[in-house]
Design a protein around this nucleic acid. Structure first.
Lengths: 223, 223
DNA sequence: AATAAAATTTAGACAAATCTAAAAAATAAA
DNA sequence: TTTATTTTTTAGATTTGTCTAAATTTTATT
């Protein structure tokens, strides 16, 4: 039997993992604000996670996930993102509605369930927000997939999909030499109309509208 | 916002509903043994459910679900059975493996989720064990669907589906005048080889093997 | 009807997760 | 390097759900 942790503990592991990734370092206050709780409650939980060897922690000296803690956190993230994918792709939810529901679903225990779900969904690499989905070993591809509106400026990326399949958009993209596999980066984003200026190697810059940008998906390596 | 009840409370409501249906009446001890807990714990919970107006309860005098309690119980059952159906039909789980996982999934809150799931599954009327699935209003069809091995003796039923779609089984059934819509009842079950003797109106009795019986699904009205 | 047996409830305790208020330690500022 | 400020931790409560052991009520049996 695989060890089971409470939903609350899992949520702490996930939050700590996330802060670790983003800031490199984590503090009691960070965790408290991320989890909408009090620092005192965080300290209480840190002690419990340490007792379970999920966390390396010396009081007043900071803390970080143990190897085991990291592994657990990745499994929670895997479950969260697979369920989000399911909700969007199979149950027709919007990107914005799925987070809360996935927060609940991610705590369902069965490993077999999640591996079967993964298979049922066709082993997706990224969730509906473009965040990578760890595989059943907790490894993940560093590739992120997003639409052009969400591609960070100056980030090299490769076109991996077109949302709208109409002949019109394909003609437009073709004319601007943008197709599957094209490598490009965003040079400028104009707040006025959300239009975007792109640079493709050996070409002069091109501008595309928000409407087009929304329908061009690209992938790029995270970090 | 829809009221939320804890998983534990929901489990009590479900157990009480179930015992009410089966025995007409429920006792503290019944609930304790159904839930694998102690009578004292049941009493504690009865008081909490009463305070929430989910239960009509006078101490030492017995108890039953209120209209609201019944409604909540039916929604839990709906969720449980829809998830079971999903696990079997979409994720290829066996009938026997799904109960435990569904016990967890049934406590996920979102009503929208469950209604979308229902739609995704094509509004199934019964779960993989043949038990009826309440609709989103908590109503259910009294029709149960089971294979012939599980049809009670002397219970009139109607053939509603064939599991194995091979030409061989269809030929055999055709020869015995059994097809979709045929009304029949089981007259005898032979423990020796699990073969079954059937009676179809205006025909002499016919016998079918366990293998065939397993692949013939029938529906009948419960109660 | 009195007593024995069974069912149910109460009293008091405990674990998990949280909180507030106060104390202790680390960091920043004078 | 003192003092002030911020961060973190402890102490002690609270809530939910559970438990054991003992008391109470109901039901069954002589």
């Amino acid at each position: 039997m695989v060890p089971q942790y409470s939903s609350s503990r899992e949520n702490y592991l996930k939050a700590i993992f996330h802060l670790q990734e983003v800031h490199g370092t984590v503090t009691t206050n960070d965790v408290a604000s991320e989890m909408q709780t009090r620092p005192a409650s965080v300290t209480d939980m840190l002690k419990k996670l340490k007792a379970q060897k999920l966390l390396l922690y010396e009081k007043y000296k900071g803390f970080k996930l143990s190897t085991e803690g990291r592994k657990v956190a990745l499994q929670i993230i895997r479950k969260h993102r697979l369920w989000e994918y399911f909700l969007v792709e199979k149950l027709r939810f919007g990107w914005d509605e799925v987070h809360e529901i996935a927060e609940e679903l991610e705590h369902i225990g069965s490993k077999k369930l999640i591996d079967r779900l993964d298979e049922f969904l066709g082993f997706p690499k990224t969730d509906p927000h473009g965040d990578p989905i760890p595989d059943s070993q907790g490894r993940w591809t560093l590739t992120r997939q997003v639409d052009l509106l969400n591609l960070p400026v100056n980030q090299q990326a490769e076109v991996s999909g077109i949302g709208d399949q109409s002949a019109e958009i394909l003609e437009l993209l073709n004319h601007k030499h943008i197709g599957l596999g094209t490598r490009l980066e965003v040079k400028k984003k104009f707040a006025f109309d959300n239009s975007i200026e792109l640079k493709i190697k050996n070409q002069s810059p091109v501008t595309i509208s928000e409407h087009v940008a929304k329908n061009v998906f690209v992938k790029y390596d995270d970090e």
